[in-house]
């Protein structure tokens, strides 16, 4: 099997995100960069498929020079080779441009299944997998928690609101990984050392022949409204307090 896993380097979940004074983005100085956790589920699933069915796993990442660390992390987990699309003109790439870069790379190689994270925890867009599938003209399975490979097709579980779907799709296809798909492995030390010597092909935008103009532009980055300090609901009547919590969850937090 030829398996591809697309990865993105993102700030750690707990990293402090400081918006630049001019609103042009975030301060990157103190940030600890990690592999996007959803992409990690994808890499893990790719490795498990390979271990079960044979084949090899290629890691592709679009990102600045530092993204190489993330490719190496995936290689340390057990992937075979990498492609790094690295070009300063892609620094402001949106999902469309990123997908175009990935598609341009993938079109030149054999593939049976492509894994992406269901979204990246930096821009939270959740589009790349689907746009990539469209560009390759193959089906997509987004936000997937279980994959079962069956020769020319795969079956997948996709949770939706209040239910879950069992979907069957012909290969090749794009699968975007959701939490719950698997528990990503911890890279072994020999794996980390071997990863340093695995081949990673570095490409620029010109070589791929893609347009680099973002379709959706972030014109301004703004800090979030200061989150109100926790509210302790007053009153003596438990029932009244419960009603108030329900109201706040509905109207203020909008989570129910």
């Amino acid at each position: 099997m030829n398996i591809i896993a697309c990865v993105k380097q993102v700030p750690d979940t707990e990293a402090q995100i400081k918006v630049k004074a001019d609103g042009s983005g975030i301060e990157e100085g103190q940030i600890k960069w990690v592999m996007n956790p959803y992409d990690e589920f994808g890499v893990e699933e790719a490795l498990r498929l390979k271990e079960k069915n044979g084949g090899d796993v290629t890691i592709i990442s679009v990102g600045p020079a530092r993204a190489m660390e993330t490719i190496r992390t995936a290689l340390a987990m057990g992937a075979d080779k990498g492609v790094h699309v690295c070009d300063p003109v892609l620094d402001k790439a949106d999902a469309y441009v990123t997908a175009a870069a990935l598609a341009a790379v993938i079109k030149g190689m054999p593939y049976d299944i492509i894994f992406c994270g269901q979204r990246a925890i930096d821009d939270d867009s959740g589009q790349v997998g689907a746009i990539l599938a469209e560009m390759l003209d193959i089906p997509q399975l987004t936000i997937i928690t279980k994959v079962e490979y069956a020769g020319s097709t795969i079956k997948a579980i996709k949770p939706i609101e209040g239910a879950q779907l069992l979907i069957e799709t012909a290969l090749p296809c794009v699968v975007t990984a959701q939490k719950g798909l698997n528990e990503p492995r911890y890279a072994s030390l020999p794996g980390i050392m071997k990863a340093k010597k695995k081949p990673v092909d570095v490409k620029n935008a010109a070589a791929l022949g893609i347009a680099v103009e973002a379709k959706a532009k972030v014109v301004k980055t703004i800090p979030p409204p200061a989150r109100a300090a926790g509210k302790i609901i007053c009153g003596d009547d438990p029932a009244q307090k419960a009603v108030e919590v329900a109201r706040l969850l509905r109207e203020e937090a909008k989570v129910i």
Binding site: P11, T13, I17, V19, I26, I121, D122, D123, D124, A216, K217, V218, V219, K220, T221, I222, P223, P224
Partner: peptide, 10 residues
């Protein structure tokens, strides 16, 4: 964006 740690105008 960033899990609500900032917002983007698109």
């Amino acid at each position: 964006m960033y899990a609500g740690k900032c917002f983007g105008e698109i």
